[in-house]
């Protein structure tokens, strides 16, 4: 296991999160009062069977989904009650998310996809930001493929571009929802190695996975079942 410096004070804390969905007229409660705290530099794995609520939970933690009740405290602020502008600022600066599917923009090159967080306005991307993006691509081993479109890259390479895009912002928390789910085992291992390296540099990682082997690489393993942490 990697040896990051973990600071005990919670960086991100979820308290009593509940979330319900209605499908075909049937209400189901995905989260039934889940609590979790993540310290700065900590690597937390969330495992559980399909439908246990782990993806819903990480979506709530990463502000992509609002809970019905509960609190998500980050840096002393309850994100559930934050304004949209505050949420946008946190999504842009502090949180980074990677998904099972890379979700790259197919018409932008690997470099441009990596620079995407800096393309939110009419302000042009700076030379420093480009240099940073190239460094991130180099870090995931794709410096030589920076000008290729996603369609010209393999699945593993595309996922690595997504990781580079997450890294470029210098976020404090990385949420990874099944990052190896669509990759073969060799590529999956490479991606996990990358996440481990990133974590050693002080970035907190919250990862959802089915893979117990990968889950055990984390500092802490949280198991979910039926919308609860068990």
């Amino acid at each position: 296991m990697h040896e990051p410096q973990i600071i005990d004070a919670p960086l991100l804390e979820a308290i009593g999160i509940t979330k319900s969905f209605t499908q075909d007229g049937m209400a189901s409660q995905a989260l039934k009062g889940v609590s979790l705290s993540v310290a700065q530099g900590e690597f937390v794995s969330i495992v559980g069977r399909s439908g246990s609520g782990k993806s819903t939970f990480v979506s709530v933690l990463s502000t992509l989904l609002m809970p019905d009740a509960g609190q998500v405290n980050y840096n002393g602020k309850d994100l559930v009650r934050a304004t949209e502008a505050e949420i946008n600022a946190i999504r842009h600066g502090d949180f980074a998310v990677i998904f099972q599917f890379h979700y790259l923009l197919p018409y932008l090159t690997a470099l441009e996809n990596t620079l995407l967080p800096f393309m939110r306005s009419l302000k042009p991307v700076t030379r420093a930001q480009k240099t940073r993006a190239m460094e991130c691509l180099a870090r995931v081993g794709l410096a030589d493929k920076a000008h290729r479109l996603p369609g010209q890259l393999s699945g593993g390479e595309q996922q690595r571009v997504a990781i580079a895009r997450a890294l470029v912002k210098e976020a404090r928390v990385l949420f990874a929802d099944e990052p190896t789910g669509s990759l073969d085992s060799a590529t999956g291992a490479t991606v996990m190695e990358l996440l481990g390296q990133i974590n050693t540099e002080g970035l907190a990682v919250v990862m959802v996975t089915h893979n117990e082997e990968y889950a055990r690489l984390a500092h802490r393993l949280v198991r979910m079942e039926d919308g609860l942490v068990v």
Binding site: N88, R91, H92, Y103, L116, R120
Partner: peptide, 16 residues
Amino acid sequence: KKEIGILRSLGFSRRA
């Protein structure tokens, strides 16, 4: 839709 979701997850505002 997915592209829009990605942009929003990266902090793009509705206006953007």
